[in-house]
Design a protein around this nucleic acid. Structure first.
Length: 631
RNA sequence: GGACUCGUUGCAUAGCUUGGAUAGUGCGAACGCUUGCGGAGCGUUAGGUCGUCGGUUCGAAUCCGAUCGGGUCCGCCA
C-alpha cells in the first residue's frame, strides 16, 4: 500500500539516488535519506560522505556532482537540490504538491497506519501484579508502557493479544491470607476504602510487620502457601474469593486509565494444568536441562548458565519445581507451543469499550475455545527481572527457532523522590527511595489520579464557570489520565523515574495538558468558523514557514509509528505528539486563520487546522490519551 | 567476585540503534507579549569541554577499550 505522506518524497529521492549510483556503478551503499534539521531544506542525505572513500574525493565535491546529476532527472515532489559545503545533499520540497498529498491523506481514517506486522499475531503481556494490594505508581509504568506498545503494534498491522498474568498463588497472597485467618483482620474494609487499598495498606503491611515479632507466623505462612497449591482446599477457595475481589479493584483502576485486556491468565491454573510436566519432558528431550550428580546443586535439574553465569536450578533435589518453572510453561503457552489445556469464560464484569475480557478456566465452559497465543511474544516486566527473562528468552528462541520470538521488554523502576519519601515518613538523606509494598512505602495510583482530578476540576471550573458539572468531570478525567500516562512514557524506558507527587501535578510545559490544550485551540477555531472544513481548497496558498512546518510534521506521522513499533519505543510517539503541538502553537501565535481578507486562504488554513486536529487525536490515541474540545 | 544499566547546563530530559552540518526540549532564573482564533500559550536572554582518559576515523555525544561515580541483579524464596 502506497502511502501519500512525507515518506513519498523520501522514497522519490531514494529511488533517484539509486539510479544515479547505478549509473556510477557504485551500488549497495547504505545511504540515508531523512527529514532534514531545520534550516537545511526539507530532506537530507548523507550519501556523499559514504561515497567519499570509494571515489577518493571530498564529500563536498561529490555532493556538487550529485546535485547536478539529480537536477537532470525527473522529479515531481522535489523543487530544488542543494549541496551544502559540509557535504550534505539537501532537498527542498515542492510544497504545493506535497501539502496536497499530506493533507488529503491526513483526513483518512487509517492515516499513520504502517504494515510492519503483516497481520501476524503478537502477544503483549503486561500488568501482572500480585492480587493482594492496590496498584501503585510503579505498576502504572508497566501498565501504561504495555498498553501503549500494544496500541502502537496494532497501528503497525499486528494482531495484538493483550494478556494479564495474575499471580494468585504466591507468597504475597499467602501473607494477606495469614492476616485474615490468623490475625483477625476483618474481611470488610473500613467505610469508604476500596478493598484492594485495604488489603495492601492495612492487611499486607501490618501482617508482614508481625512476622518480625512472632516467628511462629512463618510456619503458618508456609502451610498456607502449601494449601494454596491444592485447588480443592478450603484455603484455596478462600484465596480465590479474596484475590478475585482485589483483582476486580485493580482492573477498575486500569479501566479508569483506559487500559483493557483480552485475557486474564491465572498462575494457580498454570500450576494445576500440568503444563509444567509437559514442558519439562520437552526440555529434557532437547537436552536444555541437566541433572546434577555432584556439587552444590547435587540432585537438582539445572539450566546451564552462559559464560560465567551461575547455573539456574529449576527442579529442587526434593523433586519440586522452582519459581521459574511457572514462567517457562507460561511463555511456551503464549507462543502456542503447547496444546492448550484451558477453557475460556468471560470475565464477570465488562470492560469499557467493546473489547471482551476473557479468562482461563480449568472447569468446563459454555463459551467457545479461544486462542490468545502469538507468533511473537512481548513480555513487559521491569529490568530487575532481566536475568530470569534472559533464560526464558534463550529457551524460547530454541523452541521456536527464532531469536526474536520472545522479547523481554524491560524498563527501569519508579522510585520515590526524597521529598515524597519524606511525606510517607522516611528520611532518605536526599536520595531517592525504592518503593516497597511490604514496608508500605509507595504511592497508590488511585491517590495520584484523585489528586490530579481534584486539581484539574478546580482549574477547569475557574476557566469555565458556566460549564455543566458533568462536562467538567469529563474534562478533568481526560486531563488527569493524560497527565499520568504521559509522565510514564515520555522518557526512555531505561531511565529511572523518580516520582515526585508535587511535580507530577504540573500541567505546564512538556505535559499532556499542553498537548491537549493545542487540540482545544484547534477545535475552537473550527467551531468558530461555523462550517466544516472543505476539501476544495488551494494548498499552494500555504507558504508561511509556520504552516509548512506543521504540514511537514503531520506528514511524518507514519514514519514515527514505524519507528516506535520497530524499536518498541512508546516515547517516540510521546515526543512526536509534543513536537506536533509545539508546531501548532507556533502556527497559532503567528498565523491568523479566521476573519482574514483572503477567503481562499482562510479555507486552506482551516483545512490545515483540521488536519492537525485529526492527527494529534490519532497520535494521542496511540498513547491512550483523549483530548477534549474545551478545557 | 560476576553481570546488567545510567552519567548531556542549577534540576529533569531528547539525540546514540544507522558517526557528519548549529547538541533539541521542559522546569527553574531574568525580561517582554493578551481591545486579537482561548496566556494550560508565545517570544527574547543567560546557562553545555555530552563523567574522565585513550583508541578507531578525514570527522565521535554517537562506535571500541579502560577508568570513576550512581542504580540494579546474581537462593534448592516467590
Amino acid at each position: 500500500m502506497y502511502k501519500l505522506t512525507f515518506k513519498s518524497i523520501i522514497d522519490e529521492i531514494e529511488n533517484n539516488l539509486h539510479k544515479i549510483l547505478d549509473a556510477l556503478t557504485v551500488s549497495e551503499i547504505p545511504f540515508s535519506v531523512e527529514p532534514a534539521k531545520p534550516g537545511f531544506g526539507d530532506v537530507s542525505s548523507n550519501v556523499s560522505f559514504l561515497l567519499a572513500k570509494h571515489m577518493k574525493k571530498s564529500p563536498q565535491e561529490i555532493s556538487i556532482t550529485l546535485s547536478e546529476k539529480y537536477s537532470q532527472l525527473n522529479h515531481t515532489l522535489v523543487s530544488k537540490v542543494e549541496s551544502h559545503p559540509s557535504g550534505y545533499l539537501n532537498f527542498f520540497a515542492d510544497w504545493e504538491k506535497l501539502s496536497q498529498l499530506v493533507l488529503s491523506e491526513s483526513n483518512l481514517e487509517e492515516f499513520g497506519f504502517v504494515d510492519l506486522g503483516k497481520n501476524s499475531s503478537i502477544v503483549v503481556e503486561h500488568t501482572s501484579v500480585n492480587p493482594n494490594k492496590a496498584l501503585h505508581i510503579g505498576h502504572i509504568r508497566n501498565i501504561v508502557v504495555g498498553d501503549v506498545i500494544s496500541r502502537i503494534l496494532q497501528k503497525a498491522n499486528y494482531k495484538v493479544n493483550v494478556l494479564n498474568y495474575v499471580d494468585d498463588s504466591g507468597l504475597q497472597v499467602a501473607d494477606i491470607l495469614v492476616g485474615f485467618r490468623h490475625l483477625g483482620f476483618s474481611q470488610e474494609p473500613p467505610e469508604g476504602k476500596k478493598f484492594d487499598h485495604y488489603c495492601g495498606d492495612d492487611v499486607y503491611v501490618k501482617t508482614t510487620e508481625k512476622y518480625e515479632q512472632d516467628s511462629s507466623l512463618e510456619e503458618i505462612r508456609k502451610n498456607v502457601l502449601k494449601e494454596l497449591e491444592d485447588g480443592g482446599s478450603e484455603t484455596a477457595q478462600f484465596a480465590d474469593k479474596i484475590t478475585g475481589l482485589v483483582l476486580e479493584n485493580q482492573l477498575e483502576t486500569c479501566w479508569n486509565l483506559g487500559v483493557t485486556y483480552d485475557c486474564l491468565n491465572y498462575e494457580s491454573q498454570i500450576i494445576r494444568s500440568g503444563l509444567w510436566s509437559k514442558i519439562f519432558e520437552k526440555l529434557k528431550e532437547m537436552k536444555l536441562v541437566e541433572f546434577e550428580n555432584e556439587g552444590k546443586n547435587s540432585g537438582c535439574w539445572v539450566i546451564r548458565g552462559e559464560g560465567k553465569e551461575e547455573d539456574k536450578v529449576i527442579v529442587r533435589s526434593n523433586g519440586t519445581a522452582t519459581y521459574i518453572a511457572k514462567d517457562i510453561p507460561y511463555a511456551a503457552w503464549k507462543l502456542g507451543l503447547l496444546e492448550d489445556p484451558f477453557n475460556y469464560k468471560k470475565y464477570q464484569k465488562s470492560q469499557p469499550g467493546s473489547r471482551i475480557l476473557w479468562q482461563t478456566t480449568l472447569d468446563a465452559s459454555d463459551d467457545p475455545k479461544q486462542n490468545f497465543s502469538g507468533d511473537k511474544v512481548i513480555t513487559v516486566i521491569d529490568s530487575r527481572q532481566a536475568r530470569l527473562q534472559k533464560i526464558i528468552t534463550t529457551l524460547m528462541a530454541k523452541f521456536k527457532s527464532a531469536s526474536d520470538a520472545y522479547v523481554h521488554m524491560g524498563y527501569e523502576s519508579v522510585t520515590l523522590s526524597p521529598e515524597t519519601a519524606r511525606t510517607l515518613g522516611l528520611d532518605t538523606e536526599g536520595k531517592q527511595a525504592q518503593m516497597s509494598g511490604r514496608k508500605g512505602l509507595y504511592v497508590n495510583a488511585d491517590s495520584v489520579y484523585d489528586l490530579l482530578k481534584k486539581k484539574t476540576i478546580e482549574e477547569t471550573s475557574k476557566r469555565h464557570p458556566e460549564m455543566h458539572e458533568s462536562d467538567i468531570q469529563s474534562i478533568a478525567h481526560q486531563i488527569s489520565v493524560g497527565t499520568l500516562r504521559y509522565e510514564m512514557i515520555k522518557q526512555d524506558l531505561d531511565k529511572i523515574i523518580a516520582f515526585d507527587l508535587t511535580k507530577s501535578l504540573s500541567l505546564e510545559g512538556d505535559t499532556a495538558p499542553y498537548i491537549q490544550y493545542t487540540h482545544a485551540r484547534a477545535a475552537r477555531i473550527i467551531e468558530k468558523s461555523g462550517k466544516g472544513p472543505s476539501i476544495d481548497v488551494d494548498f499552494s496558498l500555504l507558504q508561511d514557514t509556520n504552516e509548512l512546518n506543521l504540514v511537514r510534521l503531520i506528514g511524518l506521522f507514519d514514519i514515527q509509528v514505524r519507528d516506535a513499533a520497530k524499536n518498541l519505543s512508546p516515547k517516540v510517539i510521546a515526543r512526536y505528539s509534543h513536537d506536533l503541538a509545539v508546531a501548532f502553537n507556533s502556527f497559532y501565535e503567528h498565523v491568523k486563520v479566521l476573519d482574514i481578507d483572503d477567503k481562499n486562504l482562510e479555507k486552506s488554513r482551516l483545512f490545515l487546522v483540521n488536519s492537525f486536529k485529526l492527527t494529534i487525536e490519532r497520535s494521542l490515541a496511540l498513547l491512550g490519551i483523549t483530548a477534549p474540545d474545551k478545557m
